[in-house]
Nucleic acid binder design. Sequence first.
DNA 1: AACGATTAGCTAAACGTTCCGCTGGCGCAA
DNA 2: TTGCGCCAGCGGAACGTTTAGCTAATCGTT
Lengths: 336, 336
Amino acid sequence: MATMKDVARLAGVSIATVSATVNGSAFVSPELRARVTEAINRLGYAPDGVARSLKKGRTQLIGLIVADITNPFFTELVHVIEAAMQDAGYSVLLCDTDEDFEKERNYLRILQTHRVDGVILAPTGTGDAYQGLKTLSERLPLVLVDRALPDLGLDAATVDSFAGAFEATSHLLDLGHRKVATIIGPRHLAPARDRLNGFRAALEARGLEVRPDFIRSGSFREEEAMAGAQDLLSGADRPSAVFVANNHMMIGVMRAIATLQLNCPKDVSVVGIDDFPWANAFTPRLTVVRQPVEEIGRAAVRLLLARIAGPAPQPVHEVLRPALVIRDSCAPFPLQ
Amino acid sequence: MATMKDVARLAGVSIATVSATVNGSAFVSPELRARVTEAINRLGYAPDGVARSLKKGRTQLIGLIVADITNPFFTELVHVIEAAMQDAGYSVLLCDTDEDFEKERNYLRILQTHRVDGVILAPTGTGDAYQGLKTLSERLPLVLVDRALPDLGLDAATVDSFAGAFEATSHLLDLGHRKVATIIGPRHLAPARDRLNGFRAALEARGLEVRPDFIRSGSFREEEAMAGAQDLLSGADRPSAVFVANNHMMIGVMRAIATLQLNCPKDVSVVGIDDFPWANAFTPRLTVVRQPVEEIGRAAVRLLLARIAGPAPQPVHEVLRPALVIRDSCAPFPLQ
DNA sequence: AACGATTAGCTAAACGTTCCGCTGGCGCAA
DNA sequence: TTGCGCCAGCGGAACGTTTAGCTAATCGTT
């Protein structure tokens, strides 16, 4: 691999001049410029980003740590963030924690040794596992996505999960359902907790009782949700509607419904969180709470770039509004 | 950020000793080792990967260029590759080309300046756009995934798309369908081309005519497939079965079927390429050709690591077998 | 003619590591 | 006591850049 030194020698100039030509950082006479460019082409020279990074103290790399890239919500988020960062001249180091906190820790360490210029993190641990994060964020620009961490005073871009759950549940109640259950995610994660609270609040707002046996909480995974739904829906006292708190879990619920030979929405109405292309392609087309993924991604990128560029601004927590998308998976109750 | 120099000073040893302690690259007496470790902890020292990379000429970074991370096939591929690379001590720079060849070129350039140790590429351009790639691969370990490039003699891990399409189409024919159509991807991509050939071959193997108006080819995108399917299925001379060549396009086709108020599988049978969680959750559960994504990813990683480690081995093209997964979206014809 | 101002391009010192080759202190044999 | 081998630990040169400061040439002013 040719270096600046080789280019300099071939062009008969100093390496400083080569550097100036490559970066346009100083005036170089047209004549020398031509000689340098010629030499660059002859040698197929390309600047060494590693050496440059060492000297400048910036790598043009950011770390993106997501909890589960297999979830369309995160897929889309990664998609948006990667594109936006690319536009801003940064490349993205992708880290997938698989909802495993130990992996997350490890990734954070690796990203630091790679000297990334910043990190966008969807944290996966419980709140009290993040003592060190605030300190870290003083050295390393850090923005949280999707899942905020209480009281740490970090930049974050999340959605109003409470409002989403409230709206979804209210939709079921508006349709006349009274026996409404929920399949909810892990309670230590802010969005899952907020969704549960939103669900509760919607019921309570109408003076309805919140039945503990109608709340199934577990991981965000398909199998667990399927088991929970199967149990819930095969009991004698079956709910007529279910609010499902995430994407993967929705698959589990739909499979449970199919397995039990039930019909959605005739036998059970279902409303979920997260819209995605498939939700609109199959029978029934799903009624869901659409998360503003693109906006979240853009907000996270904006916050991170600001923190990288400037003297640390006040922490900002952007909370975006989700929107209910009504399709065919919820029917009025009782059926006419 | 503390450096080795700081650690050395605090521990009262030389930089070389710190390096030896950190890397275990030379014997260090227990006493000094203890002093060094103590100093490291006190200062919160973490090695600088950039400086290390510069010195060693290796970055422990690989580039992963995919055509469309939004497609569950690639999502899963990214997931597998990221995990496997991580296990091998490499981090992954993710690049999403959005099926745009110019972006791909650009990413390849960026990856080179970041001095990645290798690249896994799902190419998106036409074959003749890749003249330079062979030369590049002599300097930079390179492995193709999903889409091979003819005659370049590069490492690749792909699936036998011809066999998959042949099997899928034969399944429709076995069920008695005779008017079988296909919605196929861009013809300049090997998998799409192979699928079309497999489709053709299956028909020809039974002496059936291949009707050009029953072949709709375009991009891999949902909208185009939906339009194509709508056109195809609303004509008087409607096919009774459709072979759909990819994931996104399957959504378009299913939406077209719903829009036209047709029933799958009663009015149209459908078989697709790519299995994914949602295919098994909705009505109808889709009959698809399952691609061995995990195996592809692992093969690509294995090939790349071999190429990074050793003196360039002979190029290897691993071709993996897909498998038909029969569910509910294909009915016999005529219906009993 | 002499002086400073301007400026194109150069020299050389970093950036934080790794690792080659050297030093100096020690133990042991003669 | 001297000489020798051994080896823990050290010094310093590289890796390929960027950039502060310098030099020498050119120019316009007085």
